[in-house]
Amino acid sequence: MTRTSRLRLPLGLSLGLSLGLGLLILVLGLASLAAGKVWIPVAELLSPADAPRWFIVAELRLPRALLAILVGAGLGLSGAVLQGYLRNPLADPGVLGVSACAALGAVLSIWFGVAYGAAWVLPACAMAGAIGGMGLLYALAARARGITTFILAGVILNALAGALTSLAISLAPNPFATAEIITWLMGALTDRSLQDVAMVTPFVLAGGALLLTTGRALDALMLGELTARSLGIDLTRVRWRVLLGVGLIVGATTAVTGMIGFVGLVVPHLVRPLAGNRPSALLVPSALAGAALVLAADTVVRILPGGTEVKLGIAMAVLGAPFFLGLLLKMRREIL
């Protein structure tokens, strides 16, 4: 029996970790509802019946907290899956240019004016952009063996999507469109409504479900594609699941919150010391830790002193870029 329990230990560990992270999300969620320019005591949150400031909570902070959870969970999971699938600890939807492609899709829909037609148009364009970006990434790095090739493909994709986005801004039909695009690009969770939450949720859930089915394949891939195939893994199906799963999540979340980078890069690295390096054991904890990270970051940018709030996307980049540099330095030998 001792042998059985030893083998089961990683699963138990991962369950305990997940429960702990769930609790953390609950606490951070309450903090996110309570904190801001107007502080609302937690006791008031729990008995909302006739609270005078309930409007702030329900209309402004609740959608924001829910979005933070969805976006963080989606990006954290996407990062963990991409790192496992590509066997690359630097993989992340932002670094690889998938987020930039989603943003380009969304910007084009604003630019052409079609986004004002119906609420679903912009998210649909963003998802199309993200899925197209994943496809381009696969094509660019089809024969990639090393860690660097994929990252370089991501650099190319980022540069291309960024340039086209800038082009769209500079050729914007009117100053309002320009302002709208730029504000949205910076990435923020402010002034979003429950309608926005309702729009993102099904796509994040669908994408998340697709990605969660890849755990076994990601484990098998740690020994390379040939071994994975010899273990009965259908790599074509895995490729499609990763493409669609990441595409849906990154497209839908980018459509509502703009570009929020580095979550997918940082989170799996934070989780690994606790959950171990096995890719399948990282998926659920990475989703939960991603949610906690974005909730925390969004609460912090809200209570920082100053007239205007720091945009969440900018705050995450300020935190994430040094982290990326640190990883690069740590991996210097493997990359060169």
């Binding site: 990683p10 066997r87 891939l221 740690m222 040939l226 010899s230 171990g276 390096n277 096995r278």
Partner: peptide, 24 residues
Amino acid sequence: FMVQSRDIAWGVSVETLVGLGRIP
């Protein structure tokens, strides 16, 4: 099938790695 390459992408325990043989 034991492939020629002995590359292992992630630093997992020996036991976990051997357990991958149970995937099918």
